[in-house]
């Protein structure tokens, strides 16, 4: 693993030409640090560009001859002001937040119970139920949105936030359930047996023993679900039509683009502000996030 590279400086020249040549500082820099720097720069550049565009006055934005486009000479908050006070942006943010929290809670509730039933109550065919829920994750929203639009319409939920709160769990529940099954697996079953002998009911066990021990798993699943609902686009585009009920990703694309003249300043500000909540959320929980991303794949 990582130790190979680390151990090598300790290896003396006597260990053979291969190791030596591989170990030389220049070569290490060329094969590791240079490509890594390029990767990081390319992956981060669009964010830098987004941020710098958001604070540029229009004159600088459209004039590369007299200004260095990579820097801002006269930073301005005009775009942010315009976005927050002249559009429904604040409204979109709160709507998106509400929908993301609602669907996350609903999904977590359903997933905890399902994962507990599959992993701990163990009944005949529980594995198949687990597999069926997992298979649901393989059904992409792009196939479902047309018939779902009709279902949503028939239920009278069209153009309401409930349309999204109820449909987002279709991709959140499978993911969360699998993550939580993995977590429940890691909790010793003996703890539950002890509680059973002491006369606790199954629900008491779930509430008092299993759930508190599965908190890291709940956090991982919750963060992931929140991010996925915040970023969701196709359902929000298809099921919501009135301006003030739109979610941020949809609203930025459909409401801030007017006519043929693109107001790149306010568009980039909208994109930046819309990315910030998930980015901040993510920064606080990076480790949970990485573990849920990799855990779900390994399961």
């Amino acid at each position: 693993m990582t130790d190979i590279a680390a151990d090598q400086p300790a290896v003396t020249e006597a260990d053979g030409p291969q190791i030596m040549s591989w170990d030389s500082g220049v070569r290490r820099a060329m094969t590791i640090y240079v490509p890594l720097t390029v990767f990081v720069l390319v992956l981060l550049f669009p964010f830098y560009w987004m941020a710098i565009t958001a604070f540029k006055p229009n004159g600088e934005l459209m004039n590369y001859k007299d200004n260095n486009p990579f820097w801002i000479n006269h930073p301005t908050f005009a775009n942010i002001n315009k976005l927050l006070f002249e559009t429904d942006y604040g409204h979109w943010l709160t709507t998106t937040m509400g929908i993301a929290f609602g669907s996350t809670f609903l999904s977590l509730f359903a997933s905890v119970l399902a994962a507990y039933a599959i992993q701990r109550l163990r009944f005949k065919g529980s594995e198949y139920v687990g597999l069926a829920i997992y298979a649901a994750y393989l059904v992409p929203p792009s196939i479902l949105f047309i018939p779902l639009a009709q279902v949503v319409y028939q239920l009278g939920l069209f153009d309401t936030p409930y349309a999204l709160i109820l449909t987002y769990p279709t991709f959140l529940v499978p993911f969360c359930t699998w993550l939580l099954i993995g977590y429940f697996k890691s909790i010793p079953y003996e703890l539950e047996e002890c509680a059973l002998i002491d006369g606790a009911t199954r629900l008491q066990i779930l509430r008092r023993i299993t759930l508190p021990l599965a908190v890291p798993g709940l956090i991982s699943a919750g963060i992931f679900a929140f991010t996925l609902s915040w970023n969701e686009f196709i359902y929000a585009l298809a099921f919501i039509s009135s301006t003030e009920k739109k979610t941020v990703p949809v609203a930025v694309l459909t409401e801030l683009v007017q006519g043929d003249v693109y107001h790149w300043g306010s568009l980039m500000t909208g994109a930046l502000l819309g990315s910030l909540p998930v980015a901040i959320f993510y920064m606080f929980f990076v480790e949970y996030y990485v573990s849920s991303l990799t855990g779900a794949v390994k399961e």
């Binding site: 890594l36 990767f39 990081v40 992956l43 981060l44 669009p46 964010f47 560009w49 987004m50 991010t227 915040w230 970023n231 686009f233 941020v248 990703p249 949809v250 930025v252 694309l253 568009l267 980039m268 909208g270 994109a271 930046l272 819309g274 990315s275 998930v278 980015a279 993510y282 920064m283 990076v286 996030y289 990485v290 991303l293």
Partner: peptide, 19 residues
């Protein structure tokens, strides 16, 4: 590094697409 490399993945796709 691992944390910042994941940024493109966690930001809303549409918003980075606009960038």
């Amino acid at each position: 590094l691992r944390a910042i490399i994941l940024l493109p993945y966690i930001t809303p796709t549409v918003l980075s697409a606009i960038a």
